[in-house]
């Protein structure tokens, strides 16, 4: 009866190899996504080169769910530019337009005031208590490009996590079951 045992063993090893190959290809996909993201970070000089607009404060220019491409660059901040900034004590970055700039002579340090196109007043109410100006270190990048609607995918996925897990599961299943 030895030949049956051998047969089962060979199938087992075959399956093991298949599973291993599929795990590797899944890893490759994750790794290349990471490479693309980190590459973008390096090229654009912005910590997060792509952001999704979450509020309507820049309507009608940017709507909720639109995607912005950011670029930091070495150029100084100027009035009219749309910047993404972080406020101390707030987690979510804000995308608003610069309306005032005061730049020092020697150091080139800047004082910046922002406002959402669709908001009535400037952003001093959003800033930390007592903060009058944004400085260079608050600013993550300036918007250079624009893609409508695509960001809805991430908004839906963060607000309805089930959809995210279903989607990830389906994708993983697709990768694992796909034959070469």
């Amino acid at each position: 009866m030895g030949w049956i045992g051998e047969y089962v063993d060979s199938i087992r090893s075959l399956q093991f190899r298949n599973v291993l190959t599929q795990m590797v290809s899944l890893g490759m996909i994750v790794a290349s996504a990471l490479i693309i993201w980190k590459g973008l970070v390096c090229v654009t000089g912005s910590e997060s080169p792509v952001v999704v607009v979450l509020s309507g404060s820049m309507e009608p220019g940017f709507k909720r769910g639109d995607i912005l491409f950011l670029h930091m660059g070495k150029d100084p901040i100027r009035a009219g530019e749309i910047v993404v900034f972080n406020i101390d004590g707030r987690e979510i970055p804000i995308v608003h337009r610069v309306i005032k700039v005061h730049e020092r002579h020697e150091t080139g340090e800047v004082d910046v005031l922002t406002k959402g196109d669709n908001n009535f007043g400037d952003d001093r109410l959003l800033y930390a208590r007592g903060q009058l100006w944004l400085h260079q270190h608050h600013i993550m990048g300036r918007a250079v490009g624009f893609l409508p609607y695509v960001g809805w995918v991430t908004i839906i996925m963060t607000e309805k996590p089930i959809i995210k897990y279903v989607l990830i599961g389906a994708l993983a299943l697709l990768v694992v079951t796909s034959k070469e």
Partner: peptide, 20 residues
């Protein structure tokens, strides 16, 4: 098109002031 008018000037302290 977003359009704005800014006053721009130099002061002893600041190389550039842009005020919308």
């Amino acid at each position: 098109v977003f359009v704005f008018l800014a006053a721009e000037y130099e002061t002893p302290e600041n190389a550039l002031n842009q005020v919308s």
